[in-house]
Design a protein around this nucleic acid. Structure first.
Length: 859
RNA sequence: GCCGGGAUGGCGGAAUUGGUAGACGCACGGGACUCAAAAUCCCGCGGUGGCGACACCAUGAGAGUUCGAUUCUCUCUCCCGGCACCA
């Protein structure tokens, strides 16, 4: 077969993909003894079609997969679908289509898209989390955890839409109102199941040190999230109806305890509820605190308000009465749901005290940590410094932070009122969701027996797939065929739990299941030991905390249940930067918000933007992550249809480093297309026997070309090692440029260079590399070729160029022999006319010689 | 608000450990080829001044350390991600 003269991406891509399919090229098999490489990209939510973030994510994963395969590793790159979730229910509300059908149709379409991009995926391991064969193990492990006490039930706070009478996700609450109804949202307490992740807090924190392959920023974020703080937990005693009671608080600043002038309760605190009885004003205030969303970001930015309860407690050390307030900024979920108020040394307490006229006595002197004397007129940052000593604190006067905390904790302990304690910011994981499209929680509620686990033999509890949610209430609760059952214990009629699990449960162990997706009898088997841990995990930085933390937790739970022998699931982590795009929306009078895709919007020269469909203005919402909810995704299909997979992949890799945020623009994709066409044309000329001979200067040009190719290759291999793939793409361009300049029919250098180039490109543009490698008879399959390494001999030059600086400014360059010593270099440099001109008679203070790089003359 | 990250030409980005700022591309301008266009090839391309050699300015803003700072330290501005029910 003759080589095509013109580069036609679509035909060669089809051919290459057929070859891979037919030969089962990406089918991964366990090969004990052979070093494995498990490369995993975060599986997609089947939202409808791929967006650019997916293409970026999966191209990075595919590049690394193919690179390691060419380096001799036994690779596994699986793919699946994070198939449960809210958008399927939203689609049902909008279009009346059952979430199951919508989801499966999306999966089919997106799978076709992934295949057209030529990813080296082992599709035989494909799974979807909405399949009973998968989620039965969610249920099974849930029940195992329940047995071990790692799952328990308690109340939790949710967003309640009083009009639709339904629980809303945080995302569905906009400015404190329901997204569909515009109704003001209320906080509601309902019973939920929790996973006791806090029992693993210490290990989750400590084990971060065993993950050198993780980005520092992710480990820092996780450590801060887990939030280990050392402090003192103590109680304010008080008397209520003749009983001795205690109000417990936690503080990291026990050294300031003598400055306490009030205590503040969260609105949900039981003592607040007690005080509100017979106090309508307080009851109203507590109700007010309960309006709005449950999001911490909202809570943290609201205006700080408070109201006295009329109650007071006793200071544990001074015995003085301390008034008790309710504060809307106190979090029930953190610590004890109550805090001590030290206005002089805590910024929030300071403003609170100013607002409500509470005393602000200074008890810490941190001279040197800030300027200005202590004044209650305005807050100064040094008030919060731990580098001070206690004052106005009686027996603690003069003590430093650590000494004061020790002494105060000891005194509290002696009174039986408190002691030092570790506090975690991490909270247990509430997994109950009042939604239809998720994994059913395998519990049966029986009037006589209480909450009864579904027996193993009855698993899975299968979710009916024909429901069409309408946005009101809980859809499963409306299904008598699902709800009504019999109690496994007593056999009497009983009701199934209608809550489903958080979708983070589904994604917390799919990477384990990929090792054994076909095992119907066990959650995990011995194949897990071969493939796990994941050698390279790749996904968006937005998952830096929750998904990764839950996955780490889940792995440790499975380990402790004897299911796997694995401490950490992901050895190396690459956090891909987000792909952003403009956001446009309209807000109706009802408060309901509609988002418009930037493709449907036209920006006007005079500012502002309009919707193309109706010519009316839309509001600009800045830029943000491409997402279904903001409707600002870009469909990569157009790019693939027009240019083919290789050009799309090359462009994606070339346009920015994997870890950087990328604001989407297709400017530059022409450059990628041009490059691959040039490569093709070069290969065609090569096959014909190279360029016409041009003997003059050939030897030197040949040497210079080899030098260029091998130094670029050396750099490219370094860049691959640090996952900087954009410069690897640049390197390929540089090699082609160097080869193109070699205008002589020197087949040896051309052939060497082209073989390097095609292998270097094989992970990024696998189709064209596959085709040309075979057509040029370099071998049968480029995937089987060894990875290219640079030839050190090509990099030895007789002379090296040094940059010459005078006072740190570049003033020229000199060529010196490769082995010249500092003394010789100095002599050459000082004789240089440009240097003499700039030195112009001034005294030379010193000469800095950086070997192989530069010389700096300081005058 | 808290935690994490970022800012370099008109644009995407490069600069391995503090050592030539702007590699490689895009866009743009000029030229070659062509009846013409596309494609392709060649040249130019941070700013200011100068015919030019060259000089000065320049890596979000301001300060500091250093012979030398895009790189290290501090302060600030803006943007992005996360904040536990989006996934």
């Amino acid at each position: 077969m003759a080589m095509q003269q013109k580069y036609d991406p679509h035909s060669i891509e089809r051919e290459a993909q057929q070859y891979w399919d037919a030969s089962g090229a990406f089918r991964a098999r366990e090969a004990p003894g052979k070093p494995k490489y498990y490369c995993l990209s975060m599986f997609p939510y089947p939202s409808g079609k791929l967006h650019m973030g997916h293409v970026r994510n999966y191209t990075i994963g595919d590049v690394l997969t193919r690179y390691h395969r060419m380096n001799g590793r036994n690779v596994l790159q699986p793919m699946g679908w994070d198939a449960f979730g809210l958008p399927a229910e939203n689609a049902a509300i909008a279009n009346g289509v059952p979430p199951a059908r919508w989801t499966y149709e999306n999966i089919a379409y997106m799978k076709g898209q992934l295949k057209s991009l030529g990813f080296a995926i082992d599709w035989s391991r494909e799974l979807a989390t909405c399949q009973p064969a998968y989620y039965r193990w969610n249920q099974w492990l849930f029940l195992k955890m329940l047995e071990k006490g790692l799952v328990y039930k308690k109340t939790g706070v949710v967003n309640w839409d009083p009009v639709d009478r339904t629980v809303l996700a945080n995302e569905q609450v906009i400015d404190g109102r329901g997204w569909r109804t515009g109704a003001v949202i209320e906080k509601r307490e309902i019973p939920m199941y929790y996973m006791a992740i806090t029992r693993y807090a210490e290990e989750l924190l400590a084990a971060l040190d065993t993950l050198p392959g993780w980005p520092e920023r992710v480990k820092t974020m996780q450590a801060n999230w887990i939030g280990k703080s050392y402090g003192v937990r103590f109680a304010f005693p008080y008397e209520l109806d003749g009983r001795q009671e205690r109000l417990r608080v936690f503080t990291t600043r026990a050294d300031t305890i003598m400055g306490v002038t009030f205590a503040a309760l969260a609105a949900e605190h039981p003592l607040a509820a007690f005080a509100a009885r017979g106090n309508p004003k307080l009851a109203a205030f507590i109700e007010e605190c309960k309006r709005g969303s449950v999001m911490e970001a909202d809570l943290a930015t609201i205006e700080k308000k408070g109201m006295p309860t009329g109650l007071s407690v006793t200071h544990p050390l001074t015995g003085q009465p301390v008034p008790v307030w309710v504060g809307n900024y106190v979090l029930m979920a953190y610590g004890e749901g109550a805090v001590m108020g030290v206005p002089a040394h805590d910024e929030r307490d300071f403003h609170f005290a100013k607002q409500y006229g509470l005393p602000i006595p200074q008890v810490i002197d941190a001279r040197g940590a800030g300027d200005g004397a202590f004044t209650t007129d305005r807050w100064q940052p040094w008030y919060e410094s731990k580098d001070g000593v206690c004052i106005h604190s009686g027996k603690y006067d003069g003590l430093r932070y650590n000494e004061a905390v020790d002494a105060i904790a000891a005194d509290l302990n002696a009174k039986g009122l408190g002691d030092k304690q570790v506090l975690w910011r991490l909270r247990d994981w509430g997994i109950s969701r009042q939604r239809y499209w998720g994994c059913p929680i395998p519990i049966i509620h029986c009037g006589g027996c209480g909450d009864v686990p579904v027996p193993d033999a009855d698993l899975p509890v299968v979710l009916p797939e024909d429901c069409v949610p309408d946005g009101t209430g809980n859809p499963l609760a409306k299904r008598p065929d699902f709800v009504n059952t019999t109690c496994p214990k007593c056999g009497k009629p009983a009701q199934r739990e209608t809550d489903t699990m958080d979708t983070f449960v589904d994604s917390s162990w799919y990477y384990i299941r990929f090792a054994c997706p076909d095992n119907a009898r066990a959650m995990a088997d011995e194949r897990v030991a071969y493939w796990l841990p994941v050698d390279q995990y790749i996904g968006g930085i937005e998952h830096a905390i929750l998904h990764l933390l839950y996955s780490r937790f889940w792995t440790k739970v499975m380990r402790d249940l004897g299911l796997v022998k694995l401490d950490e699931p992901f050895s190396d982590l690459l956090t891909q930067g987000m792909v952003l795009n403009d956001i446009y929306f309209r807000k109706a009078d009802t408060g309901r918000v509609t988002y418009y895709n930037p493709a449907e919007v036209e920006t006007r020269a005079e500012g502002g933007a309009i919707l193309k469909a109706d010519g009316q203005p839309v509001e600009a919402g800045g830029i943000g992550t491409m997402s279904k909810s903001k409707n600002n995704g870009v469909d990569p299909q157009e790019l693939i249809d027009r240019y083919g997979a290789d050009i799309a992949r090359f462009f994606m890799m070339f346009t920015s480093p994997p870890e950087d945020t990328l604001v989407w623009s297709d400017a530059g994709v022409e450059g990628a297309a041009r490059f691959l066409r040039r490569l093709w044309n070069y290969a065609v000329r090569f096959e014909r026997g190279g360029n016409p001979p041009q003997p003059s200067a050939a030897l030197q040009l040949r040497k210079a070309t080899r030098f260029e190719i091998h130094s670029v290759l050396k750099q490219a291999n370094y860049d691959l090692g640090r996952h900087q793939l954009n410069t690897v793409a640049s390197a390929a361009m540089k090699i082609l440029n160097a080869l193109d300049r070699l205008l002589e029919a020197d087949n040896e250098v051309e052939k060497e260079g082209l073989k390097i180039l095609l292998r270097l490109l094989a992970p990024i543009t696998p189709h064209i590399s596959h085709y040309l490698w075979r057509e040029l008879k370099f071998g049968e399959d480029v995937l089987a070729a060894p990875w290219p390494e640079h030839d050190p001999a090509a990099l030895i030059a007789d002379e090296i160029e040094l940059v010459v600086q005078v006072n740190g400014r570049k003033r020229g360059d000199v060529r010196v022999p490769r082995d010249a010593d500092s003394k010789a270099i100095e002599t050459i440099v000082l004789a240089d006319p440009a240097v003499q001109r700039h030195v112009s008679g001034q005294a030379i203070k010193k000469v800095v010689v950086v070997p192989g790089r530069l010389v700096n003359v300081v005058v």
